[in-house]
Simulated assay, not measured.
Amino acid sequence: MQLSALYRYPLKSARYESLQSAPVDSLGLQGDRRWMLVDESSGRFLTQRLLPQMGRIEARYNGEGGLRLSAPGYDSIEVALPDPDAALRGVIVWSDSLRVPDAGDAAAAWFSAFLGRPCRLVQVPQSRARQVDTGYAEPGEKVGFADGFPLLLIGQGSLDDLSARVGRSLEMLRFRPNLVIAGAEPYAEDRWKRICIGGIEFKVAKGCSRCIVTTLDPHTGERSADREPLATLKTYREREGQVYFGQNLLPRGVGELRVGMPVEVLE
């Protein structure tokens, strides 16, 4: 088995970056989902679940923590990494409330114009990250703005099996993974508890429950009229009212991942 693809999402729910290598820190891939959009008045996080057009926003991580933003019909802008202790804004991610740095009025105006609603851009420093659910993680294990866990892994064999069941080839990016593993049988990742890639150990914490975002074309944001692949997943991957595809990971070390690295199942 080997690591066949690496993806990073600098801005939560915006477009992906395809990488050949990436450092891993305590929050997952460096620069992954450290930025987020929130409703200006409530502070509640915004995603493609509510705003499918977010999938057309390109946010490139610049290596210094900042972003270069572009979107169809809009001039690109650069956003610098804000001071981690200045201009703090209260935000809500699912059931978590936290205070994080606001990126300023220029970025907010750019996003508000594109999305047609008042919003703010915020960033999470490691010092202000959220505790991962302690039902699956140790105290002190943190996550940035990802839904619940630092990393998501999907086996290529699992996607190939799902595509065959649906009857058409599906894009892996519908599921927004960080790590794609080739060479394993379909859904082998369901049975893993610990794996090692590039000398970094990862705990396989829990299956990833899927939502309506999987029915959006990852390039256009258009929703599948037949509600695929969620409709097919419900026929064989549903339990207790949730549909699962892929596995959430917790990094138990730091280092660097590169496409092509072998994957070892430790447990």
Rank of each mutant, 00 (worst) to 15 (best):
L3Q: 08
A5R: 12
A5L: 07
Y7S: 06
K12R: 06
A14Q: 02
Y16F: 09
E17P: 00
R34L: 14
E40H: 05
S42L: 14
G43K: 07
G43N: 09
G43E: 08
R44Y: 07
R49I: 10
M54T: 00
Y61W: 02
L67E: 01
G73D: 05
G73R: 06
I92L: 14
V100Y: 03
A103W: 00
S112A: 01
A113L: 00
F114D: 00
P125I: 01
Q126K: 07
V132E: 07
D133M: 12
G135L: 15
P139V: 10
F145I: 02
F145E: 01
G148S: 14
G148C: 11
F149H: 14
Q156M: 07
S158F: 03
D160M: 05
L162V: 11
S169H: 10
R176C: 09
P177W: 03
L179Y: 11
L179I: 15
A182V: 03
P186A: 09
G198A: 09
G207R: 14
S209D: 15
R210Y: 13
P218C: 07
T220D: 04
G221A: 13
R223S: 12
S224V: 05
D226K: 03
G241L: 05
Q242M: 14
F245E: 09
Q247V: 09
G253V: 09
V254F: 08
V259T: 13
V263G: 14
E264I: 11
V265I: 15
V265S: 10
E267D: 15
